[in-house]
Design a protein around this nucleic acid. Sequence first.
DNA 1: AATGAATGAGGGTTCATTCAT
DNA 2: GATGAATGAACCCTCATTCAT
Lengths: 194, 194, 194, 194
Amino acid sequence: MDGFQRRRELKKRNILEAALALFMKHGIQKVSIVEIAKEANVSQVTIYNYFESKHKLIHEVFIFYINKAVVDFENIIEAKLPFPEKIKKIIFNKKEVASQIHEEFYHYMMKEYTEGNEIEKLYNEKAIPYFIKLFEEGKEQGYVDPNLSNEAILFYVHMLKEYIQKEEVYQKILPLTEDITNIFFYGVVGNKEV
Amino acid sequence: MDGFQRRRELKKRNILEAALALFMKHGIQKVSIVEIAKEANVSQVTIYNYFESKHKLIHEVFIFYINKAVVDFENIIEAKLPFPEKIKKIIFNKKEVASQIHEEFYHYMMKEYTEGNEIEKLYNEKAIPYFIKLFEEGKEQGYVDPNLSNEAILFYVHMLKEYIQKEEVYQKILPLTEDITNIFFYGVVGNKEV
Amino acid sequence: MDGFQRRRELKKRNILEAALALFMKHGIQKVSIVEIAKEANVSQVTIYNYFESKHKLIHEVFIFYINKAVVDFENIIEAKLPFPEKIKKIIFNKKEVASQIHEEFYHYMMKEYTEGNEIEKLYNEKAIPYFIKLFEEGKEQGYVDPNLSNEAILFYVHMLKEYIQKEEVYQKILPLTEDITNIFFYGVVGNKEV
Amino acid sequence: MDGFQRRRELKKRNILEAALALFMKHGIQKVSIVEIAKEANVSQVTIYNYFESKHKLIHEVFIFYINKAVVDFENIIEAKLPFPEKIKKIIFNKKEVASQIHEEFYHYMMKEYTEGNEIEKLYNEKAIPYFIKLFEEGKEQGYVDPNLSNEAILFYVHMLKEYIQKEEVYQKILPLTEDITNIFFYGVVGNKEV
DNA sequence: AATGAATGAGGGTTCATTCAT
DNA sequence: GATGAATGAACCCTCATTCAT
């Protein structure tokens, strides 16, 4: 990659970072191209030169975000930690990519995700295998009921993770961390063994 | 309430119904005042006469929605059903108010909800007591661990309910209903008694 | 038609007049909605309120123009004039609707005209019958070869009329009026009878 | 001309060809410099280096086009064909330079042509003499009334040629070819000798 | 009280042209 | 000399809100 291309990549990354930050803070519809351009210190048109349209920019921001998230996620899974700690980290650790995620950003992304496009492919190829590996580990160690389908557990983890990441929810449930972890592992019925 | 006022209230209700329907279908930002006016068969200005601004209209729509939701919710709680059935109904029953809720509507509402305003007050006064009553019932019948805080269970139920109501999630998890219910009651560890 | 509607129609007409004038002067692509709005002393948005889009405005301008043209045209046909005078008037008389017609306006209109839509219908219903009547009159009086198809004559008249109306052509051919008329009637071979 | 210059001329020609092709297909205003650059496989700036501005590029494209057209035209005039065949070819033969000419291109060119600049000079010097020669030939052979001014005949030929070349007209008048040729030679009064 | 009409501000997008390498 | 990158200005269009009747 020569100097030209390197600079191009750098600028593209700048724009993606700026867009990601703004989308996470204010959602997608409320963020205008002008704002992103200002945040990234480029002209509007430069953004169009790189991304063609707002729609395609959003798409690339998603991919950018997922790639970042997957790296953080990988680190947790591969770490030397007891299973429950990993789960806790995955669900509660907001520091992975961004501390505040705007709901609408998630919504848009999930919509793209469910429409069977590139983002879904990326997610399936990169993230799911780690999850499966994690759950199998949990099953082996007796932390997870082997009769449960991986899909169902995945759903639960996703939901918790996503819901807790909402800025308006996060602060409310911090004192409930223990209880929520308990419910995740033992359900509302509770741990009868203890 | 004289005839004038009654007609006034009726018209207001018409507008609220129209706005609610459109918000749920398309989100809030994408629905314009003109559209609402058309749907409600009134002039735009009439909407302004009644609600001052779009922002305040949205606010009143939320209150309107919650009041409706609470009624549906009340019916479930007071019904003669075993505890687990009530929980299932609350979590999975999409028919309560609307079959398809647009994500963004929820987001806006939740934001209003957490900003300590009228909507929160309404919710706290009307909905929470029913939940508490339900959970106490669950605890008495041995379905719920008495050591768990009501807040944590509330959080869990809310989360499941909200997450499942998303149109893009709903269809994916239908086959997982049993597993999800099991995790809710017994956690990922599973029911060791069986 | 009440006061409201009358004023509405008046304003619509104003906008159409302004648009028509500008389109004829500068063509269509070069004329922006802002310019039309300024010329008509209204806001841009008012134009959108009346016409929805530039495309539809253009369409209505065409219809407006054709209706005007047909009236002028009718007057000539129905007038008590010898046949050759009528033809001359039709071909050379620029004062009918506008003194200067921008080429591109014609181009756009003809495109619409050939795409089998409302404009074609309008033209066929309103203008063609007068032409046919005129040509039949010419044939009866011996001014027109009865073996010629009406389509061919129509084509010829159209072509001459349109071509001469071009601002860049008009001034050049004024001194040639006699010759051109002669060619129209007797062809380049000339009137052998004389 | 050394190697440098030859390569320069070649590139210039490439750009002109590309621009001409695009202008003829889509008109002038709708074709952007970027598109021309892409079609010619050069950078936009290269175009500016050679032509200074879009306006001047258009100008040079016109000259380029006329030169090409004149050559085709010359071939017809110098061919061994009876006079009426030459006329027919000139008027109806669309294959001379391009089969489909976008109207707007003609318009622009004609405007330049009438503004007393280089293009007019070129046309007067190169094309007109051939026309005059052709008409004199016609007069000698009795096909053209010697009393008619060459300007008037030129006007007629031009008009027919140009009008027929319009893509939206061409197909409509194909079945009328005979009649139109007849009108050109004998006028609407028709050939009384026959 | 209710309405049709009107508007200023802003959104996404395109383009001829210039800058910097 | 040639290029990719960058830009200011303009365009079409939308919307929450206000005006005038």
